[in-house]
Amino acid sequence: MVDLQMGPPIHRLHERLLAYPESPAPRGQDLLALVYDLAHRIDPGVTAEVLEPLARLPQCQLEPDEPEISAHPDVFMLMIWLLADEAFSEPTLSAIDLVSLLLSADNLMATGYPNLQDEDQREELIRLALNGLRLKPRDETDHQARDRLLMVSSSERARVVTASRAAEERAEAIRQALAEQRAREAADKYTRE
């Protein structure tokens, strides 16, 4: 397993996401230019060949006057905003990892439009971004970083919530059966008396 580089403190990245601007996000070619800039800043040696797949992303092909699908930013835009933080200029990063992360951004989380007020969703997005760039939050070990990513992952959540709900439904069925049995016994007793 590859060692992870030390990244920014996680609380700083939470603050960064909470400061996501309200003004309309760039789209189409403007967005593509922004992403290229980001890639060059993170990895000055990046080549056009590495960046080429980004041009095919739907977000980079939108016309400026096309209506927004959602009032909330999608995972892709949030990743761009997050990684534009100056804290990411310190570690040595690979543009290949960045491009790979951005290409898969829309499928990383269970929700395409995370709620920024939800601490767990912010945490998941941050840890996915760091992991995609082979980074870990400052002051965490590799092991901790991987454990904590698992803790906040949507798929893991889905698995444990399903287990919890199934257990609750089984327990509820037993409780109802007991309640009905008690009611029957009480009715029998009443009839006998």
Partner: peptide, 18 residues
């Protein structure tokens, strides 16, 4: 309601949680 049924808590789409 049980928290696993609370959409504010699970925030997962129906396809994921069934």
């Amino acid at each position: 309601m049980h928290p696993s049924h609370d959409p504010d808590l699970t925030d997962l789409p129906s396809s994921v949680t069934g």
